[in-house]
Every structure is written in C-alpha cells, then in structure tokens.
Design a protein around this nucleic acid. Sequence first.
DNA 1: CACCTTTTGACGACGGTCAATCATAAGTTG
DNA 2: CAACTTATGATTGACCGTCGTCAAAAGGTG
Lengths: 393, 393
Amino acid sequence: MEELLKFAPRPTGAGEMFQLLRDGQPRTRADLAAITGQARSTIAARIDLLMSAGLIAPAGEASSTGGRPPATFAFRPGARVVLAVDLGATHAHLAVTDLASNVLAELETPLAIADGPDAVLSWVTEHGDKLLETAGRRRHELVSVGVGLPGPVEHSTGRPINPPIMPAWDDVDVPGILRRHFGTAVLVDNDVNIMALGEHRTAWPEVTDMLFVKVATGIGSGIIADGELRRGAQGAAGDIGHIAVPHAPDVQCRCGNVGCLEAVASGQAVATALRAAGLDAATSADVVALVRSGDLVASRALRQAGRDLGSVLAACVSLLNPSLIVIGGIIADAGEHLIAGIREVVYQRSLPLATQHLRIVTSQARARAGVLGASAMAIDHVLSPAAIDALIT
Amino acid sequence: MEELLKFAPRPTGAGEMFQLLRDGQPRTRADLAAITGQARSTIAARIDLLMSAGLIAPAGEASSTGGRPPATFAFRPGARVVLAVDLGATHAHLAVTDLASNVLAELETPLAIADGPDAVLSWVTEHGDKLLETAGRRRHELVSVGVGLPGPVEHSTGRPINPPIMPAWDDVDVPGILRRHFGTAVLVDNDVNIMALGEHRTAWPEVTDMLFVKVATGIGSGIIADGELRRGAQGAAGDIGHIAVPHAPDVQCRCGNVGCLEAVASGQAVATALRAAGLDAATSADVVALVRSGDLVASRALRQAGRDLGSVLAACVSLLNPSLIVIGGIIADAGEHLIAGIREVVYQRSLPLATQHLRIVTSQARARAGVLGASAMAIDHVLSPAAIDALIT
DNA sequence: CACCTTTTGACGACGGTCAATCATAAGTTG
DNA sequence: CAACTTATGATTGACCGTCGTCAAAAGGTG
C-alpha cells in the first residue's frame, strides 16, 4: 500500500510551490522541480506568475557546477505589508511589517482598553493609516490585519468572550469593524496567544511543542503543539494564572479562589509582598527596577515567585511534554532570578523523560512579541496556498 | 527529502471525496457534487473507481422529488479489515475490526509485557493470524495494524522510549517486526493515547478538545486538541501521574518524588490506603469490588481519590480548556464516587469560562477503548486521501 | 397511457501538465 | 581562445482530468 504512494499522481498548484520559498532561502528552478517532482516547464511558468505578482524576485546566481550558473529566486517579503495590533490593558503597540514580519514602522503608546471598542478601534484605524504612511506604503499594499486583545477571544469569529478586564468588548465584532475601514481580512486572538506565536515564528520556528509564559501584572500562557497554536474549546487555553500552586500560602485571588498562581507569583503579587516588607513597589515595573538595582529582598522574592511558577509549570510539562518553555512579559526583563527559580522546581518535579530535552529560556522577542505574533497571524492568512492562488489569478 | 513527502500525496481528489463518505451516511451523486463543487460527471467517475475497489457500495434509492429517484452510495466498512492490538502490563487484547471499527473477532487474555518483545510479539503474530481466520477474513484483506503499548512511544518511528515498566522494549522496532510478518503498515502508540483515540472516535467524534484520563493501577491521560491526538515533543504528553497534588499528604511515589497524583489517587494507592484501614484490598480490582459491594470506607476513599484527581484535572482544564473530560480505566467502573469527587473540585477550582461548557463523564468504550483506538489509528492511516488514491490506481 | 421531472451515462471540448526538442546564453576547464 | 558543461526559453504533441451538453433511462403524476 505504502509502496503505491510514490505513484500517486500530480502535485501542487503555484500557491503550494510558493510555500517552499517562504523560508526566504533562494532556490533554483531545478531545486523546485526536484522537490515538487514537476516538470521544469511547469516550474518556469509558476515562477513567472509569482514574479509578476511581485511575490518572488531573482536572487542572484548560484555557484556553477561546471556550466552556466542557475538563477535563483527568493521570496520577496516587501511585496505587501500587514498591520499588526497588540492591545494591552493600558497600552497599544502598532506596527506595519512586511511579509517576513520585519517591522517597517511602529508606534507604542499608553491607551486604556477600558475606554471601550469604539474609542480604541477608531484610534487603531486612525493611527494604522498614519503608520502606513510613515512606512511609505499605500493602502492597496496592505493585505491583512492581525490584532491581539487582553482577554479570551473566539478566534474563528474574532469576538471577545466574557473578557474580565474589558467587559465592554464582550461579543464585539472586532474583525467586522476593522474590515470596514481597512478593507482587508482581520484576524483576532488573545494577546498571550499572539505573543506565543511571535516568539515561535521569529525565534524558534523549528520547535514543534513549546509553551510561552507571560509574567506581568497577570500570568498567562500560549501553547504551541505540533507546530500550531492551540486555543482549546472556547479559546481559553493557556489560562494558567488561576491554577492552584502546591504548598502556596492561602493568598486571596481576585478570581475568588485562594492560592492561585497569579495571586502568589505575578508582578502585582510580588509588588504587594515587597510593600509588606517595607519596600516602595506599586507596579510590576517597580519590581523590575528594584531587582535591577540589586535589591536583595526583591531578588529573593522574585526567585520565590519563580519557584511557585515552576511548580505549576512542572505540571504543564508533564501534561504537554514541550521541548521549550519561553518566559516573557515585563517581569522576565528582571534578569535570571525568576527563571532560576523556575528551573529549580521544574527540573526537580518532572520526570526525566520530559525534562531531558527541555529548555527554559527568556523571550527573545521581548516587548515586540505581541506585534510580531499579530503580524505572523495576519501573514499566515494571506500567504496560504489558496490565498496565493487567488492573488495571482 | 521530507518536503517531497508533503507534495507527493496531492491527489486528484477521489480520496478526498471519499472522506465525505467515511461517516457511513449514504449520499447521492448530486449531494457529492454540491458539497465538493465538482461536476456530476467527475463525481460519477470517482464513484465508479471507489466502487470497483469495493470501498463504497450502492445503498438503495433516495426518495424521489418528482422524477427519477437518485441512487445513493455509502462507505462499505467491510471492504477490508485491520488488526487492533492493545497490550497492557499484564494483559493483551486483540481484535480484528472492519474499517468502521466494528469488532469482528476479539481475544482477551493475561500476558506479561515483561516477557519481552520477542515472546510478546510472536504471540501477537500467531494469535493475530488465528483471529483473522476466526473472523473469516484472509491475509490480503488485512490493510494495517494498530498497536498500543504501556509506556512512552515515539509515534513517528513506533519505538518505545525508556519505558519504565517494560525496559526490555526500549527502542525496539515494533513496526518493523510486525510488518515483516503481516506485510502491512503498523502504527504504534502509547496505550492511554489509543484509549483516548478510541473513546473520541466511537463516542465523541464531534468534540474537538477533550482529555481522556485512565485511572487504574497507574494514572495517565491522552489529549485531543483541535480534533487530533497531541503527543508532545517526545510522545510523553498526558503523563499526569506524577503531577504534584496540592495539599496532598507527602506520600512517597515510585518516581522518587512525594505527593504525586499516582501516589495518592491510583488504584494501587487506594488499595494501600484501604489495607491500612484494615480492609482486604491488594489490587485495583479489589478496590472496585469493595466499592461495588457497598463498603462505606472504600467509597469514601474513592471519593477522596476523586478529589485529588480533581485538583490536578482543574489545572489541566485551565491549561487546555477542553469541553470534555472522560474518565476511563478499571477504577472508573466502580461507580459515581470517583467522578463525583472529581467534579466537586474541578468545578470549584476552575474559572467559569472554562467550566461552563465542560462535561465530565465516564468512558463509554470501557475495556474496549484500547482496541477501538488501535483500530481507529490503523484505519486512519489506510483511509487517508493519499492512501485511497494509491489504492484505486 | 401520455407527459413531466430528475437522474444517469456517454461524448466531445477545454485546459493544465508533461516530456522532448532545439537554439541560445553563460559560465568552467584545459 | 576553444571545447565543454549546464541553464534557460520557446515550442511541440500527447495525455489526463474535468467540464458542459445531450440523449436515454427511470420513476412520478395526471
């Protein structure tokens, strides 16, 4: 049966051949013909199509093997642009990127999500247009928009569902509103999910199973399994902030339970603990500043937060068996104390099989993880085989 | 090279049209044309192909709407058979099923996995052949074999990796050995994973995100996310037995840590606790028997085990956001005490968004979950669009 | 029974892909 | 520089899958 597989007939359209080039590496026509199994003439025709759409461009000549050197072709990320929108509880981060998520122009500013969808989204459309201009691109070059929101989102419809910190946004048709203005596809997801996506695509594209953990005022995570973001039944997957921490003190959490991870290890929780110890710490940023200034009490508190986080992440490791955990969010900027605490507990509490190939690292995308993820989500939608085929006809 | 595989199985579409019929429902040519958007003549050609391969058969006429009544066609599950093999620590369960996982012949018997791969696998080949004969099928009708093993398995290669209870099986090429005998594709996975698959396919096919939990001598789980089994980076996902239980007593676990779920809530752990209370309980089966006989101490112990399980499952719910948790394994046969304890804690400890659509139920496939899953895994491989296209050419 | 509706199978047309061929371009090797 | 090697573009006929049409078949309706 399997043997017959190799006789299976004809492959691929132009859109699928294009997927091979998305990694940015230049390839010759012969390369593509060998990989796809198609005739050289067919490949040549597809190259012409993709070139005339501007999606690929000649990338110089490869080295000769004795005769005429072959011409190579590579993905041309600058062909179009997308708008990436990362909305947090109190800030907004906009970026215009090319199709390889290179940031062409960006804008970061305080903005309260609680102002409601009308105010926030009209701010987005206004500054989205301006940013496009700053990047020197025209509206017709914009092919899609990706948005991250600080709450649970049903990804298929793009509507927030019962978002605790932005109640006015419940069930708002965010894609519809933005599409009316920009005239393109609009993809929406949870902010932690898009951070996970951003980190995955830009820093760890070859990893298939990873967990991205955002530690800031709250705590959340995004799950990549088998190479893709997993959102769960209602889009609420990764919500680890309210998992009970084993052996934690019975601290009251805003969710009503006691001993939640967020109540003992979030930036807010650490700040509260430091105030109780007589230090001046109101916000997560204050905690980071204290630790960076070398304050021992703050460092010790952060390491303990790491241990508490670690005891929850150990459970996540057992359940998901990722090969990578990435720690992001503002608290991750406070140095190695947090991650040291995490490692301490995770490697002790998990089985060897799950930890032998497990790395635990800090975010590389840092504050840009959100927009990079929003960009990646928008790009994915637009560079799918079907979308490419539609574009070039 | 691997990329090539991504392209080779890009078929003409007969295999893909066949996927529509896999649900067993009869459809007319017009139905299929409407669904796929292809011309009726094209559909007719594909029907002919699939008919001549025996994969589908006429299923009578649909009711007329005024003119000639259309003929309907339906998947013919009896066209081929697969062998399903569920190997536990101390027992073996074999089944020959048709392509809809209907059991045609089965065999369940004690067998020690610790006897090693040579002894066990030759037992499997011998009795596999006999079972095929019992079912009245010939060797050439067998198209694939699915195997479940009680330990971590790298699914892509089918090799066990560091299996704690079957060390002699480490890195053994199980698919290779069985393929040499049966001459078909052989798929291998962890036993809990195939139970999850079996339960999912036979009882909850429409659920996209669920968690199957096996509670027996040990505790393990299988994850279905976005409709498919997720195995993690090394195939060890779902290994919840060694997650720390919050507020649990510091019971020593065989893994070296203390307070593991398996050490406080497994059949073995409950039996140990009951012995300490003066009851006669050596195995998980004894625990089930005691509870069924109405023993109050045993019932209370099981309910507490449910609570402990629940506190771990609450974390899993927060992380994965499933819409269903299925409890299987022998302990699940002891009635509602266990599941009552689970519900008690899960619904209290998880956020409303995650629990509002969450059901927690006992397994419907029961003892057959394993072979049904092995069967489903084998069938999936053989009824994929690419495999069908290869078959009918 | 004649007429209508709908399905079905057969046929020819169309378009995409392939394999082969040739002339030409653009390098390397001696 | 000449000979050789390899890549490219253009062209061709053949093949295969798909589509649309049309007449025949099969049943309902009056």
